[in-house]
Design a protein around this nucleic acid. Structure first.
Lengths: 217, 217
DNA sequence: ATAATTTAATCAAACGTTTGTTTAATTCAA
DNA sequence: TTGAATTAAACAAACGTTTGATTAAATTAT
């Protein structure tokens, strides 16, 4: 394609600043990161951030809005998949959520720092809207399972909270995660394949034993 | 007592600043809150913060260290209680955790904002240490239940993550919580008694179905 | 008991830095 | 040669903190 042979759509340097910003914001928070810090880490002039993104705040919005819908499409796809049983859909959601979130721990951390605050109202509500949508999708699946009598009569909203909350708890702090699950110090749980499988296995077991009537296990 | 009739041990104003700071830091984060903001909210002069606490950072440390051990004593007490079965201990932990965390949402939010960042290393590690201790206590209970064959062979660390993670997910954002569980707009889930019972009931059901062998249900 | 002295609390103002952002000049590629 | 990219320098505003004066209360001395 022309687009590829003539160079990238998005400027290399712009993308480079954006990635450095995701890391920095995740480590120090938005207010805790200065543009000079960011410029130094990305090895560009301080003026380049405003040149490319307009302002520090717009850079932040770009980061969130560019990636925040990351689960939406996959969730809808799983919900609509008629080849999957209800518990099969739950399993698929667990696998996708865990893999997706573990693959971008920095971005995930930024998202939750923002959720915990009450500043930047528009951005805050954007993130909340995505969460609400995802919860509704999961609720649809759970309620269908309940109607079909393959699921127990559980609390759909809090079941979602248990699912996401378990993953978030693991994502809170890498050093905490390492202390809890592994004694080795250079161990990175987020890129470790065995750890990812461990989280998926645990979550599936929790959800199976909670959702399924005993006859189905 | 002399102490009471002659006045309080801790200065009223100092306590007043501290409580205002907890609210402000929870809303805007530590770096997002200025001493002038805080002084205005607490209705004191800007100089009073440094006068009482030395610095903004020391005020922050005071907040965290003053309250962060909030579950420690109770957890040990529950673990040592010989009148409780293993599942009874889990239930007691759930009841205490939920009640305690829901009762101080602002402080809880500050704690997790700090966990998500990697600044202020000493403080960060202090918080982590408390988490690790609590996890070990819960692990002891779970492993005892497994040895007694009343619990399934579960993943102790991730079980803790599920327990705390579920509560945290609910505590992330009040407006998110309201949208998920209640349509009324003036509803405050954190002070609502019915909501607290709902969370406790859900968590107990999850933990019972996950931990207990089928014969015990 | 009254006056003198010390201590603690409070304040407006100012300190030196750092902040995000802009400018105007320069370099670079097409 | 023209427009985009890049730079060092400068900008006002906001930041945490300190200062020195002022007040009020408590303590000591007379």
């Amino acid at each position: 394609m022309l687009q590829e042979s003539s160079g990238q759509v998005l400027s290399d340097k712009k993308e480079h600043i954006l990635n450095a910003a995701i890391e920095l914001f995740a480590e120090k928070g938005f207010e805790g990161s200065s543009i000079r810090d960011l410029a130094a880490r990305a090895e560009v002039n301080v003026a380049m951030v405003n040149y490319y993104f307009g302002s520090k705040e717009k850079l932040f919005e770009t980061i969130v809005e560019h990636r925040a819908t990351f689960m939406r499409g996959k969730l809808d796809e799983i919900e609509a998949d008629t080849t999957l049983s209800e518990i099969g859909k739950i399993d698929a959601i667990i696998e996708n959520y865990v893999a997706k979130i573990l693959s971008q721990p920095s971005f995930h951390r930024i998202l939750y720092q923002e959720l915990l605050k009450e500043e930047r109202e528009a951005l805050h509500e954007n993130i909340i809207r995505i969460f609400v949508q995802n919860t509704h999708t999961l609720r649809n699946i759970i309620e269908k399972g309940i109607r079909k009598k393959v699921f127990r009569k559980v609390d759909p909203e809090l079941t979602m909270a248990t699912l996401i909350g378990t993953i978030n708890q693991v994502m809170l702090s890498k050093s905490l995660c390492v202390m809890l699950v592994e004694s080795k110090d250079n161990f990175d749980p987020y890129t470790d394949d065995a750890f990812q499988k461990r989280v998926i296995k645990h979550l599936k077991q929790v959800m199976h034993s909670y959702l399924l009537e005993q006859m189905n296990r």
